[in-house]
Design a protein around this nucleic acid. Structure first.
Length: 648
RNA sequence: GCUGACGUAGCUCAACUGGUAGAGCAUCGGAUUUGUAAUCCGAAGGUUGUGGGUUCGAGUCCCACCGUCAGCUCCA
């Protein structure tokens, strides 16, 4: 190996010899002109780098090319798009302060300190200016600077100086220039602004500097960018699809629920159709819990404030609790419950427990009230009255693994039934915690064993547990790929201590039980909201508020149709008659718009033959004619199996 | 909570620089009796979110309050 050449390793484990000082761009050129043209960055020993940075002896190098399915490629592109945005904003508002401008999961944003917030028209102007910056095809030039130089470079921008001061002394400080704009930036970037051809600014809103509401508010502009127009279009279509599925919109169109100003924000009124969905979900989870040995309890909606003092909620959770109330002339203050755990803990403590009683599994599907800040309320997803499918398991340390396994198995059944893919994350002990190391060791090991036993892959969130115990979070994906926080299974070493819980072991000595909090749906409100979006309002038959609508063709068929409705109802199916004098087409359209799984058309032919012409929502074959008996059996089977697709 | 935008009939939206509120759908009545995604005619429906103010005159301008929407570190 001479001094004048270096050898780097390629992804296929072959080696390439290059002159010393060669860059990743040189490497791409040496491999082929096609690769050189497609290259936008490089992964060097796993780290994303600019194309024009020199390679070192023995580096493992992978050329990153323009690709809308490579997260690293998108990262560099969107990071660069953020700079293009800042370049444009600085052109239009030379005095704008520059905050952070990172790539994010679906795009990028940049925060600006400007005296007047951006309007939608501003965004259009900025977009046009960005197009000019892209057209100019400025190279992104990286420069390493020392601290003094950096302080001079960004001397007029207090936000940058603040960030600069936090960079450790031993870290390289780099600045990137594209045309007129220089930014303090870690990089990497695509080679030139010309790469950022397919972008779109999406919205602007205030955002606190560093997310701290005590600090100044900046104006944040969100956008997204892709390498191909097709990918950008697909993304915009996905956003449109998300709007189409918005549960707030569907909730109104399908007459599921409303939020009334006269009642208050964050408080849901379930209309009959929405309440039906809730009821079916509730009955389902109750049956699943019954099978798994849960006991059902009911506890009061208000309780003595002292209870929440003892549980610690008053100290740790007060800002999410409604204020205390006191009856006229009474001494005792009361609180509306934000959680069920303290009451369940008292039920455990209501008598002496033996190890033979454990595990004790308490379930309460209960309304709790939480004072959420007004700006955070959002449809069914963040509300002030919520219905938890709450459960608390009290068990011995030895039983933890089994109990976690059972809970995970329950999650698995729920997710599979609804056709939701999910993933699990184990969150382990944080820095600040209570409880002894041995207790944590045992608990974390039990969670791991339960996860292994289930045989699923899971992520690890080191240090992500609560101060009172480790947990497993379940995240699931809906039909258009969005991820939601679902069930949580949480160990708690704190409440058993605070309430001095005990059980008598086989050694005739008192021991402290372990407490497990778990919710499968989380809250019925949020879960229903997500399901509305997941199914786009077209619920599977078993959940659909109205499962069947019978449409007589003329008044002459109404009596026969009514009889069919009677039979369906006595078979336990939710059927309605639509004998309005509108045309059949109109009534079909109405049934389709309301996403009723089965529309049954009944005319002379059907009444004579004892059949129905079935139109199943979303089915490819628009119409199937079946004997009433056969349709009834098929529909019941769909309900029994909780089938996702109504097609017969 | 904070910043910004918005709030007109049950729903979706219209009403030039301030001149006295209109359409489609839904609702109701009538006609129509329909074979697979909107039949026709008619009627009714609003203290323009609430409360103040400016003005001869306010949906429109100003103030306060209520609510909705977007966002509020996925760190140079």
């Amino acid at each position: 190996m001479s001094q004048h050449t270096i050898s780097v390793r390629l992804p296929d484990d072959s080696r390439a010899e290059l002159p010393a000082g060669s860059t990743a761009a040189d490497l791409a050129r040496s491999i082929g002109p096609g690769l050189a043209r497609a290259a936008i960055a490089a992964r060097v020993d796993g780290e994303l780098r600019d194309l024009d940075r020199p390679l070192g002896e023995g580096d493992r190098v992978e050329i990153v090319t323009r690709a809308d399915d490579d997260p690293d490629a998108l990262y560099a592109l969107r990071h660069s798009a953020a700079h293009v945005l800042a370049t444009a904003v600085r052109e239009l508002h030379p005095d704008a302060g520059i905050g952070f401008g990172p790539p994010i999961e679906e795009g990028f944003y940049y925060d600006f300190d400007v005296p007047v917030p951006f309007t939608p028209e501003d965004l259009e102007r900025i977009e046009a200016k960005m197009a000019e910056v892209v057209e100019a095809d400025y190279p992104f030039e990286r420069r390493e600077v020392d601290r003094k130089e950096a302080e001079e470079l960004f001397g007029d921008d207090p936000l940058k100086l603040e960030r600069l001061a936090e960079i450790p002394a031993d870290e390289t400080i780099s600045a990137y220039r594209d045309g007129p704009f220089v930014d303090l930036c870690r990089g990497p970037h695509v080679p030139t602004t010309g790469e950022v051809r397919h972008f779109k600014l999406l919205n602007a809103a205030g955002a606190y500097w560093r997310g701290d509401e005590r600090r100044q508010m900046l104006q944040r502009i969100y956008g997204t960018a892709f390498y191909s127009e097709a990918a950008l279009d697909a993304h915009l279509v996905r956003l449109e699809e998300a709007r189409r599925r918005d549960h707030r919109r569907l909730g109104q169109e399908l007459d599921l629920f409303s939020i009334q100003e006269d009642i208050g924000p964050g408080l849901i009124c379930w209309h009959p159709r929405g309440a039906r969905v809730q009821l079916e979900l509730r009955r389902w989870i109750e049956a699943l819990l019954d099978k798994r040995g849960y006991d059902f309890v009911y506890t009061p909606h208000v309780s003595s404030e002292a209870l929440f003092d003892r549980s610690g909620h008053l100290q740790a959770y007060a800002e999410n609790m409604y204020p205390s109330m006191r009856g006229e002339g009474e001494k005792e203050a009361y609180r509306v419950k934000p959680m069920n755990c303290p009451a369940h803990t008292l039920i455990y403590a209501a008598r002496q427990r033996s190890y033979r009683d454990l595990p004790l599994r308490l379930s309460e599907i209960a309304n709790v009230y939480r004072f959420e800040r007004s700006g955070t309320l959002h449809g069914l997803l963040r509300v002030r009255m919520l219905t938890m499918d709450d459960g608390h398991i009290f068990c011995t340390p030895e039983q933890v693994e089994d109990e976690i396994f059972t809970a995970l198995d329950l999650v698995d059944e729920v997710m599979n039934t609804l056709g939701l893919e999910y993933r699990l994350d184990l969150a382990t002990r944080p820095e600040k915690r209570i409880g002894e190391a041995a207790v944590w060791d045992h608990a974390e090991a039990s969670l791991r064993q339960a996860l292994d036993r289930l045989g699923v892959a899971y992520g690890l969130d080191e240090g992500g547990g609560a101060f009172y115990g480790p947990k497993i979070d379940i995240k699931f994906r809906d039909a258009i790929g969005r991820e939601w926080q679902g069930a949580t299974i949480q160990l708690d070493f704190n409440l058993p201590d605070r309430f001095d819980l005990e059980y008598i072991g086989p050694d005739n000595q008192p021991h402290r039980p372990v407490m497990i909090h778990r919710a499968i749906f989380g809250t019925l409100e949020r879960f229903t909201g997500v399901l509305i979006e997941h199914f786009a309002g077209a619920f599977p038959v078993w959940l659909a508020p109205e499962q069947i609508r019978v449409l007589p063709i003329t008044d002459g068929h109404a009596e026969g149709a009514r009889e069919i409705v009677r039979r369906l109802r006595s078979a336990g199916l939710r059927a309605e008659l639509d004998a309005r004098s509108d045309t059949l087409s109109y009534r079909i359209r109405d049934g389709e718009v309301m996403k009723v799984p089965y529309l049954l058309v009944v005319g002379d032919r059907e009444l004579e033959a004892g059949t129905v012409a079935v139109r199943a929502h979303g089915a490819e074959r628009k119409q199937v004619t079946l004997a009433v008996e056969d349709f009834m059996a098929a529909a019941q089977e769909k309900v029994r199996r909780k089938a996702l697709n109504p097609a017969l």
